[in-house]
């Protein structure tokens, strides 16, 4: 059973914390912007994708939006570890509300933060590329936002799953190098997966972010590896599984 009052309460807290913590906000925005400028413009000026109709900045833009969503979402989900260390999780868990509502509330809150960050990056992407080099209309924007939301929700859940298993921040570096960075690099954000060696292609296909980036590339540039519906379906399935897993694991915390 989901109590909307609880979901709203959790969401509200997440918003307040986010709004109050300007360094975190600036940090989560500046890195993707740095990547866009250095990689997109810098690297793009002496490197182009073979047989591609558009320049590298256009190619890499959906990838950087994906990266921003991935990082913000996972970290926001993992932040539950802090709540546990500072004892606040106890206060939440002994309240007379369902655990599912708490988890969903946390997910909605964290996803909102991630989505807002992603939308700012999208806006900067449009500014840097110019309106004419992207496919921009209400439908393409709506599709992009749908993919962004799915990516956010999925990876917030991944963060929560990690947090339910990890009791302190010591394992954090490991998560960064073994999970987050590979997910980013193999998502096709930086280079087209089609041209990669066979083994890397195989690994990339189990990377859920690949379908998210491909979906956004499809809506924003009109060119993609898979039809948009395929990306969408796979991502929805992944999202549902992760949300269910996170809720399940969370309800078992003692």
């Amino acid at each position: 059973m989901i109590e909307f009052r609880v979901v709203y309460t959790m969401w509200l807290r997440e918003m307040k914390r986010w709004w109050r913590s300007k360094p975190r906000m600036i940090g989560s925005l500046s890195m993707p912007i740095l990547w866009l400028v250095v990689m997109g413009i810098g690297l793009g000026s002496s490197f182009s994708i073979p047989n591609a109709a558009f320049n590298y900045l256009v190619f890499v833009s959906p990838g950087i939006i994906g990266m921003s969503l991935l990082f913000t979402s996972i970290f926001s989900g993992v932040s539950v570890i802090w709540d546990r260390q500072f004892g606040f999780l106890k206060e939440i868990l002994v309240s007379p509300v369902s655990r599912t509502s708490i988890v969903i509330g946390k997910m909605v809150g964290s996803s909102t933060v991630s989505l807002i960050t992603g939308l700012v990056i999208l806006f900067i992407v449009i500014l840097l590329n110019g309106v004419s080099s992207l496919v921009l209309n209400p439908i393409s924007l709506l599709q992009t936002v749908a993919f962004m939301s799915l990516i956010s929700f999925s990876f917030v859940s991944v963060g929560l799953v990690i947090a339910s298993k990890l009791t302190n921040m010591e394992g954090f570096q490991m998560i960064m190098s073994l999970l987050v960075m590979p997910t980013f690099f193999l998502s096709g954000a930086m280079f087209p997966i089609e041209n990669a060696p066979q083994w890397m292609k195989a690994v990339a296909h189990i990377d859920p972010l690949m379908y998210g980036v491909d979906g956004m590339r499809s809506s924003l540039t009109g060119i993609s590896q898979y039809p948009m519906m395929v990306d969408f379906t796979i991502l929805v399935a992944f999202c549902v599984v992760m949300v269910a897993l996170a809720s399940h694991l969370f309800s078992r915390i003692e």
Partner: peptide, 23 residues
């Protein structure tokens, strides 16, 4: 609780408000 269990980032009033809403 024996150990602290407040949200340090929120104000005192917000902590109380959060609790009231949850309950």
């Amino acid at each position: 609780f024996q150990d602290p269990s407040l949200d340090d980032e929120l104000t005192g009033r917000e902590n109380l408000d959060f609790h009231g809403r949850l309950y």
